[in-house]
Nucleic acid binder design. Sequence first.
DNA 1: CGGCATCCACAGTGATACTG
DNA 2: CAGTATCACTGTGGATGCCG
Lengths: 211, 211
Amino acid sequence: MRSYGQFCALAKALETIGDRWTLLIVRELMIRGACRYTDLRTGLPGIATNLLAERLKEMEAAGLVVRESAPPPIATDLFRLTARGEELDPVIAALGLWGAPLLAKADEKDAFRPHWMALPVRLYVRDKSPAEQPVKVEMRVGREETLTVETVGDGSVRARAVRTEHPDARLEGPPQVMLGLMMGKMDLAAARAKGLKYEGDPRVVGRFGGK
Amino acid sequence: MRSYGQFCALAKALETIGDRWTLLIVRELMIRGACRYTDLRTGLPGIATNLLAERLKEMEAAGLVVRESAPPPIATDLFRLTARGEELDPVIAALGLWGAPLLAKADEKDAFRPHWMALPVRLYVRDKSPAEQPVKVEMRVGREETLTVETVGDGSVRARAVRTEHPDARLEGPPQVMLGLMMGKMDLAAARAKGLKYEGDPRVVGRFGGK
DNA sequence: CGGCATCCACAGTGATACTG
DNA sequence: CAGTATCACTGTGGATGCCG
């Protein structure tokens, strides 16, 4: 983007990540980890393909993203955030918190991708017993996508759109119900009444709560 | 700005504040408080006047800014952040922290306004004795502009481009020297050697330190 | 199919001029 | 002082084409 020509950290940051779509691409890479071009496209409904290609080049030049050839089984390149790109996490968090109230007026026709739930999970769900053994919960949303929520040890949680080998619990159901359960706004019985399927020790989900 | 059409808090936030110049206008209003149109223009070198007018209307419509007729002595309208606008503070802070390293590669010709120093002061300066009586320090930068730094009581500080009646100390000198002194990277003698003028009890500035 | 490049219509931006 | 008007220019989104 065109420079603001100002000696100001905020202005410099905006020159780097203020372009349309750029932070949403960062969101995708944070939630999904290394991604193929096509994965990014499906996670970013509405983006024009030429713009995605252009942004990825700009972000690579800015040191936010690296492009790497994937290991043998995969025939294509992957895009991944650099450490500098990962450092945008607090920016995304602050914007997500500020933007949450705006969802109330969202358009009916807005697109939704289940893995986007990773954002509210990280922002609003807390691990109430960080000292205990770490646990992993698999949330199944839609038919294919799974979200793995894991305790980190400092009371916060990490949510990513990946599969897990042996989760300590498995949830399936409407996104709002799963989020309500994890935030402790709903107990297991209430969640089941609203369509939740639960596998695993009930105490696992009881470990989580709202912030 | 055109909608992303995504049911995602981050996308909604970016639709509201992602436009070029918008967050820089918020920066100005945070640092300077209520502003006249012309004050905004001088604080935003490079902005086209039609864009400033357009952004202010959009921001008013979005509930970030209110326009109010000023009290008697002033003949013109003032623009001020709403509570919702003030809530962007963590967003600005996160972006400022992330963008700080980019200043190293700044262009020689970049514009600078002394009051922009309020951002690094708030991000990097800490009050080491929050339990004691609050203090106010006036920093004089350039010939006209003054920055008032005050302790808030929770260990953080507040910096605004306003004058104070009876500051507990008064600094004047090159911005980097004043910042270095406040962050404790430099003692008073060293700062004086680099062009700092200091009035007031030396213990006042000793109360501050880096984060 | 994945990963773009090209083309076009249009919306956003910036410099300047002008006005109450 | 506080904008509005104009106009050239640039960025964006949609469609489509190309190539391994």
